[in-house]
Simulated scan of single mutants.
Amino acid sequence: MAYDTLISVSQLHDLFAAGADLLVLDCDFELGEPEKGRERYRAGHLPEARYAHLDEDLAGPPDGSNGRHPLPARVAFAAWLRKQGLKQEQQVIVYDSRGGAWAARAWWLLRWMGHAQVALLDGGKQAWAEAGLPLETGYPASVVPGDFTPGEPLVPAPVSARQVLANVENGGAQVLDARDPSRFRGDPNPIDPVPGHIPGARNRFFRDNLGSDGRFLPASELAAAFSVLLDGRPAVLSCGSGVTACHNALAMAVAGLPEPRLYPGSWSEWIADPARPIATGDA
């Protein structure tokens, strides 16, 4: 059985017990402390997991105008995946310790590369540890490179800042911003040098996709919440830098909703051009 959205701790444990051929990616990260995730990985990670660094592995180089975490070049990302041992049609599991905030980016990127067999561990590393299951420390042994070759993207084409600007005028799609409500409103914060949001956007804080246990809400609840926000329009997903927006993409996939389009540059790209309009407040 292939998993392509979420996988539970018990399901993953069963795959390990059955000797399934898996690639597990630990995507832990901390904004403002880029080495913190790697430190957590070394201190304890799922068996045979490789580490995926948001800045270094799951993003391309920023140039001051394309956002903090632009998409990596497909050729470079495919090479990195092969280096981690990825094989064609191999099951990939991604996780972190922040409710999927960073791992969802890896999930979306793999689908963008045409790899369908990728799932996020529901509940993350905490759920695994709380189940009394083992963690490993340090780094795994040397990895035999895989044979992965990119295929046609399994996600709609990302949108550009120019397309988002046009949408401000015509309103054909609904922009959903995954940042927390205070950043969306435009309250001063240490992350956004210019406060506010894209005019016409609505706020869907990515953590609202999770229950109190850190696991994703049932599909029916997610579908109802997103349907109210979208009101029949297609979705364009944004956040601070195109990362937690992917959490909303995963939630929509769990809910069985139409595929949204990602705005990779998101707010950090939008504000790089002072001519682009900015809104503040709750709407």
Score class of each variant (00 low, 15 high):
A2E: 14
Y3L: 14
L6C: 10
S8D: 07
S10H: 10
Q11R: 15
Q11M: 09
H13E: 14
D14K: 12
D14I: 09
L15G: 06
L15C: 13
F16N: 11
A18P: 05
G19V: 11
E30N: 12
G32L: 01
E33I: 12
G37M: 11
A43S: 09
Y51A: 05
Y51C: 11
A52E: 03
H53S: 14
H53I: 01
E56C: 11
D57H: 15
L58F: 03
G60I: 01
G64W: 02
S65P: 11
N66G: 04
G67Q: 09
R68N: 10
L71I: 01
L71K: 06
A73W: 15
R74Y: 09
A76P: 08
A76S: 13
A76E: 15
A78Q: 06
W80T: 15
G85Q: 05
K87W: 14
E89F: 07
I93C: 02
S97V: 10
G99H: 04
A103D: 02
A103G: 04
A103F: 10
A104F: 03
R105P: 02
A106I: 03
A106W: 06
L109P: 02
R111Q: 13
W112S: 14
W112P: 05
M113K: 10
M113A: 13
H115N: 08
H115R: 12
H115L: 10
Q117R: 14
Q117V: 10
Q117S: 14
A119R: 09
L121K: 07
G123D: 00
G124Q: 02
Q126F: 12
W128Q: 00
W128C: 05
W128K: 03
W128P: 03
E130N: 14
A131I: 05
G132Y: 06
G132S: 00
G132H: 02
L133W: 05
P134E: 07
P140S: 03
A141E: 14
A141F: 13
V143Q: 08
P145V: 05
G146I: 02
F148P: 06
P150D: 00
E152V: 08
P153L: 08
L154Y: 06
V155R: 00
A157H: 10
A157S: 13
P158E: 03
P158C: 07
S160T: 13
R162H: 12
V164D: 04
A166T: 01
A166N: 09
E169D: 11
G172H: 11
R183Q: 07
F184Q: 00
R185K: 12
R185L: 00
D187S: 10
I191F: 13
D192P: 04
P195K: 00
P195V: 15
H197P: 00
H197V: 10
I198F: 14
P199N: 14
P199V: 13
A201V: 11
R202K: 15
F206L: 04
D208S: 15
N209L: 13
N209Q: 09
D213K: 06
D213A: 15
G214M: 04
S227E: 13
D231L: 11
G232S: 09
L237W: 04
S238T: 07
V243E: 02
A249E: 01
A249V: 08
A251T: 00
M252E: 02
G256S: 08
L257R: 06
P260F: 12
S266N: 08
W267S: 04
W270S: 00
D273S: 00
P274K: 08
A275W: 04
R276K: 09
I278K: 04
